[in-house]
Every structure is written in C-alpha cells, then in structure tokens.
Write a protein that binds this DNA or RNA. Structure first.
Lengths: 252, 252
DNA sequence: ACGATTTTGTGAATGCCTTCACAAGGGCGT
DNA sequence: ACGCCCTTGTGAAGGCATTCACAAAATCGT
C-alpha cells in the first residue's frame, strides 16, 4: 500500500505508483496563476509538482537513447497514469504528435521552460550543520539545473572557510550576499529555533522563494513562497499506515 | 558505498501557509481505509499528513506551558485555517470541549495514538553517504518518536564501523537485520542507480513502509507504502513560481 | 490515395478536500 | 439555577484534481 507523502514536509510532488491514492497537499505555499483566471498559461499546482517528475523520467529516457515516447510509456516511467500525464502536458501546449507520441528532447525543453529552468537561478544555502553539508555536497543539484551560489552560516568558527569552492559567508552579510549573487531561492537548513529569524532576514534581503528543512511553520508575507521538508513528519505518516496494516490487515 | 542519493528528491507533504494554495500530492502511494468505507475510523490522507504538523505545534505549546488551546490558536501555530483543523480532529473523535478548546496533553496523546506512535517502530537507514550521515545524526528523529535501530551500507570500508552506537551492517545481511531489530520502516538514502535494488531487497525482507530519498520512482507491491523526498524537485517547483513572479507581477 | 491503426488532447463525470456557516454543547458568572 | 458567551463539531456548498472515454489527427501500409 502506498501512502502519500506529506510529511517531510516539503513538498513536492510525487507520483503515485501502484494504485490510485489520494494525495495530500503539502507545502505551505502558493498558487500563482489564480485557478480562477483562465489565463491561457495557468498550470495547476498539482501539475507543476509532477512536471519535475516527468523531467527526471525524460532524462532517463534520453540517456537510454530514446527519441520518442508515448504517454503510456512515459507515464509508466514516471509512475503516474497516462491520462493524468496527458492532461498535465496539455497545460503546456500541444507538443505531442498523435499516433506517434512525444519527442523526448522537445518535451524536455518545454518542461524546462515552463519550470523556469532555462534561466539560471542562484540558490543560497543557509546553515552548515549535518544536513547543510549533505545538501552542499549533493550532486543531484547540479545535474538537475541548480548550483549553490552561496553558503551562509552564523558560526564564526566556520565562516570564512571554503566548501566546494565557495567561501562561507556570515549571516549578518546576508543582504550583501543576496544582492551580490542575485539569490532567488534560499534553502534553510538551520535549527528550528533559528529558522524564523533566518527567514525574516531572507525576506528582508529580498528572497521570495524558500525551501525550509527546519521543522517549523514559517510566517512570511503573501508574495513569498515557502515549501517545507519535514523528515519526522514523513516517518509519522508511514507509521500511521504501518500501524493500520498490522491492525486490520491480519496476516503478515 | 552507497552514498548519496542523487536525487534527494523526494518529498512530502506540506501544509499550506500563507494563503490558500493548491497542494500537489506527492508520493506514490496509497490509501489505507478506503474512502468509500465509512469505517468509523477512516482518516483522510490529507488529514494524516497534517496530524504530524499539529503534533509539532502541540509540542511547542506544551513547552510553553499551555494547558488548553482553542482551534483558532492551534491552527495559527500550525499554519492552517481553524475549520480545517477542527474537521481534521473530528476524524479522531471528540476530544475538544465546547466553549473551552482542546486539552494539550490529551490531544497530543490522541494524535500519537492515531499515528501509531505509541508503539515503537524500528527504523533502518540504508546508505551512509552524505545524506545518510546527516539523517543518522538528525536529532529531530528521536525527539519526535523515532530512533534509528540499524544502519546498512554496501561499502566494505565502512561496514563494521560504528556510528551513534550502532554497528554498520552489510546490505547482504538485510534479512537478518530486519528480523533481528524487527524493522518496520526503512529509509533509502542510496544513489538512484541502487535504489530499486535496495527497495526490492527490503520488500523481500518484509519491510512494508519505505521513505525514499533517491530520485527514482520505486516499483513495489501494492501492500508496500512508499513516500519520497526529492530535493531537486522542490527547487524546481519553487523555480516555477519564482519565474512567474518575475514575469507577470511586474515590479517586485 | 485511402483506410486501418495508433496515440494525443480534452469534455464530461466523479471524487476528495477545503471552506463556510451555524446549531449544539459546556462553562462561568451572577 | 439560569442564561450568556464562547468554541466545538459538522452538514452543505464549492473547488481542484483525477479518471474516463472518445473524437480528432497523423503515420504507415497497401
């Protein structure tokens, strides 16, 4: 059985795998194009979350040398049902060819564009604890279009040292750092007790997109997007389903 | 070594913060009590995801010495609207007192019970790369009811060493480890290329709840729950919203 | 050229989840 | 004891999202 994620709080989208499931929403954020506005380029939040999954699936296909895929095949790789996939892609426009499928390269390009990945977005990492270091060394970043442009911490013992070619900056220099590197997105990997303060500073400095790993609900102005990832919550959700399996299920 | 996932990709659910937003679903999984069945203790998936958030909020209140809270206040701390909170809690039963609010200790206890946290659930961590180490050292685990019971990797260079008092076991001993520690939940923090294999082994060993940090869609039997956390996907979702802000919005 | 075949794109139906709004319930002061 | 006031619990309404199912479109073989 599967359950839906929601815990780790972050968000993201996921793809359901086996059977239909309800998906909880997750993050704390935002809707951009109002659902009400038929603006020709409105993309549902649930769809945006899945676009990232499709992108990864397309990457796998491309590496396998596949030039074209049907919605059925791509859906299988992405772990969703084909009708959903087609509806999702239809929000981007008509990039498929009836009777043939989708051109892997073209579709990749379109999703990239839709997600705004064609323009470089500088990411700042705040907090160099265990998690922060793991994130800093995370190869998946670069391979999927992001590179950390700045690292910030408050501990004088590590400010000034370098990691991956970047000098660790002090949190008090946040304003300068944000402007200097033109930071668009910040990743908060500090203890819960410091998260809101760091968040406020980021907002003041002009950052409008935040990925929060601290187990706290952040208060931000309406124009700021926050997504959160809460590991303990994820485990608790799994625990819920697990306990039900043991109880009702019966055997096994 | 099985190290870094490469996708950090997974994700969870989130709670919405500021304004209404649509929440994408995410994981790949399932529903336990069928929505159709009015089984008196059915809890919607979206609600389960939020229970973890409420639990954290209650913890904060308890530490602040608060004995009772109204749905309004608790909702504020948890970052949701009060009607939603009340409806969520109503699935657990009637633990509030009209005109007064909810007893913090009692409600905490009830949510704990609902999530199955009263019984200990042993968690195994697979993969000791950057991320795995960060997770192993993550204090938030213990404080929220989980403790890592076993650590597993494939790198002979680290198998046998100890971390946090635990001996690192070899992946080939998975069956024994799962039985010995009575593992209920496994956290996959290995590279994407090894994820499906590790997952298959876990399923074979009898694990039915998996938290996947590798950026891959895992195939599992219907009785297994998988939740995923995909960092890159999270950033891509933020990127999408960020690009729209720049475009339409106009001035900052 | 044409028709068979394949696969997309999408209108319509269904189902969750969220939000609204209020009646029922319980404490507290007098 | 009574009544006022506060807050819960929940029926009903409204929104998104998912799924269905099929007509439209494009290739390929003959």
């Amino acid at each position: 059985m599967i359950s839906q994620p929601d815990g780790l709080d972050a968000v993201g989208a996921a793809a359901d795998q086996p059977r239909p499931a309800a998906a909880p929403d997750q993050s704390q954020a935002v809707a951009h194009g109002q659902p009400g506005l038929p603006g020709h380029d409105y993309v549902p939040e649930a769809t945006v979350a899945r676009l990232a999954v499709y992108l990864r699936a397309l990457l796998v296909l491309r590496e396998a040398g596949t030039a074209t895929v049907s919605s059925e095949s791509l859906a299988a790789v992405a772990g969703v049902n084909s009708a959903k996939l087609r509806k999702d892609l239809s929000y981007l426009g008509s990039y498929g060819v009836r009777g043939v499928g989708y051109d892997v390269a073209l579709l990749t390009e379109q999703i990239h564009k839709t997600l705004g990945l064609h323009e470089d977005r500088a990411v700042a990492l705040i907090g160099l604890g265990h998690l922060g270091r793991a994130l800093a060394g995370y190869a998946g970043f670069a391979s999927r279009g992001f590179q950390i442009a700045a690292i910030v911490d408050a501990d004088p013992a590590i400010v000034g040292s370098t990691l991956g070619g970047l000098r660790v900056e002090h949190i008090d220099d946040l304003d300068r750092v944000v402007k200097e590197y033109n930071i668009a997105i910040a990743v908060i990997a500090v203890p819960a007790s410091a998260a809101q303060d760091v968040c406020d500073r980021l907002v003041t400095a002009g950052v409008t997109s935040i990925l929060n790993f601290a187990p706290t609900v952040l208060s931000v102005p309406a124009h700021v997007d926050v997504r959160k990832v809460d590991l303990a919550a994820e485990l608790q959700i799994l625990s819920f389903h697990d306990s039900r399996k043991a109880a009702s299920g019966g055997a096994r």
